[in-house]
Every structure is written in C-alpha cells, then in structure tokens.
Design a protein around this nucleic acid. Sequence first.
DNA 1: AAGGTGACTAACA
DNA 2: ATGTTAGCCACCT
Length: 114
Amino acid sequence: MNFYERVYQIARQIPRGKVMTYGQIAALISTPRAARVVGFAMRALPEKSDVPWPRVINSQGRISIVNWHWTPKDQARFLRAEGIKVQKRNDGFWIDLDKYLWVPKNRADRAGIV
DNA sequence: AAGGTGACTAACA
DNA sequence: ATGTTAGCCACCT
C-alpha cells in the first residue's frame, strides 16, 4: 500500500464533526515532515470520492485548498453541515482546533499532540 | 535516473 | 504580529 492509500485510510477514520491537520496525518503515517505530500494526496483525489477530504485542514486550523473541483467555500459548507463552526476571516475560513481537532487514541500516535 | 512540484510547516526578518 | 524563506518527501516527467 502506497503513501496516498495510507493517507486516505486515515482520513476515512476521521469522525463526523472532527478534523485533522496535514502534518498530523503525515506524522501518523511516517514522518511529520511529509505534510506537503498529504496535501498532494488530497489534491490527487477524484472529484467523487469516499474520502472525507474536507475534514483535513492545515495546522493553523484554516482551510487552504487550491483545487479546481472544489473551493474553500464548498469545504466550509461541508464542515458546517456536520455541525462544525467555521468562521470567516477576511479571505479565509477558520476553525477552532482546540474544539474540533481529532486525536486518535486507539493507535500508536500517542505522543501528545494535544 | 534526476529534477521539479506542491490542499504544508516552522523558523526568520 | 504579518510576510517571506527554506526544508520536506512521495509522485510525475
């Protein structure tokens, strides 16, 4: 199974109403430095996918999507539909990570990210 | 096979 | 505090 597949696998485990960051997922798979690759994997996703990609955001809790299928607005709508409070700040959208960040505890990810 | 490319990050200025 | 710079690493040419 390649890197992308593992990214998708983890992304699929994010519960409804929760989010994860790129770096977090990268750290879970291999190195915390591979955050960009996680983003790359998301970008490679087909328009129609069972992967809840909108639940993946950057470390600042903001939506930073550059995709021609979907816009940040679409992502914000998706998250709000799950009950997540997405606040608009000027140009971008912002989410309270303290509240919505999902930290898997059933795995070896341990080392307190919180 | 080598170099370029990012839905990222953390460190600097 | 906000804007820039430089590492990062799997994938594509």
